[in-house]
Simulated scan of single mutants.
Amino acid sequence: MSRDRVLLPRPEGRGDDLTDLLEIAGYDVVRAPFVRIEPAPAADLAPALDRLARGEYDLLVITSPATVRSLVAVGLQVPEGTEVVAVGGATARALHEAGLEVDLVAEGSGAALVEAVRRCREAVGSSDQDTNPELGSVSRSVSDSTAPAPRVLLPASSAAAPTVREGLEGAGMRVEQVDAYHPEHAPLPAEVERDLPGGGFDAIVLTSSMIARRAAQIGVHPRTAVIVIGRPTEKAALSAGLRVDARAEHPDAPSLARAVHLALAPETTALPTTSTTSPTIPAGHTSSTSPTSSTSPAAPKE
């Protein structure tokens, strides 16, 4: 059984599923959050949340569980008639746990959200709503060409890229983006600051652009495989000078676990596991990777 050492630098409260999958598969997982989440002050969120409670938005778009926690802490109220859209199953679960109904769940990325909205618009535009009741109110709210453009509240990280906002605006919506929380650098154990540039980890899993940039600042040894959650993180890692060895097929824990295994044990086709809940890699599957060589440099030294 492999005992490769994998560094998981996600914030506290995130990544438990991935940790479980990797540990079941025999990896030695070291958790050391590179960032910590600081909720936005209630006074900063109050104007937008007051408008939301008054029903001034057609859609509330939530992209992460951290956003849910920040909003609930300051008294989130969603009126009847405002649709709630979640990105990813974890965000939907957080909303349900907060007692909120979710009208649409997109796959776990901002790009998937924009694509889901686009498909809804196309589906309603080419169908008779009277004979297609299953299309739902979210679809109808963004597809009526005679009505004003839907107004969207998009609370997100202060470090969030403009991709989601720009995509929704490109789909014909009026988007107000507000900062729900602020990610900040977290203090790291001396062991991590020593072992990451020193070659003490076999792999590191990067799940945000900010985490990728901090990993590059610390330094990543060339022997350490770099796995990323999606294209924005991959782009940030490459721009920071890191070599990317594998990108998850989907932004979820099973896909990240598969990507780690393919980067560390590419000659095998399935995760070594004692649990039927761990992911299996189909025969012939290849990970999404950037072209690299065994001599490619990783992160620049500090």
Rank of each mutant, 00 (worst) to 15 (best):
T273Y: 03
E12F: 00
L45G: 08
A237S: 09
G136N: 08
D128F: 02
R51F: 05
A212T: 08
A265G: 01
G199C: 07
A259F: 06
S239H: 14
A161G: 15
S294G: 03
T289Q: 12
H185K: 05
A259R: 01
K301Y: 02
V164Q: 05
L206V: 11
G284H: 02
S288C: 03
P183D: 03
G200C: 08
R214W: 11
E97G: 01
P254V: 04
R93P: 00
V87H: 11
R140T: 08
P187S: 11
S293C: 08
R194D: 10
T277W: 05
E23P: 00
G89K: 07
H250I: 02
E184H: 00
G241Q: 07
A160T: 04
S139G: 15
P33K: 01
E166N: 10
L196S: 07
D20F: 00
S157W: 07
H221R: 06
A161E: 13
E101W: 04
D179S: 15
S290E: 14
P39F: 06
L264Y: 02
L52G: 14
R36I: 01
A161V: 12
V244D: 11
E38I: 02
L238V: 15
L206H: 08
A73P: 03
D103K: 06
A283R: 07
E101M: 05
E193L: 15
A212Q: 07
L76C: 14
T131C: 03
L196V: 12
E97N: 12
T277S: 12
V74Q: 13
I37C: 00
A240L: 13
P47H: 09
L256I: 06
S70N: 04
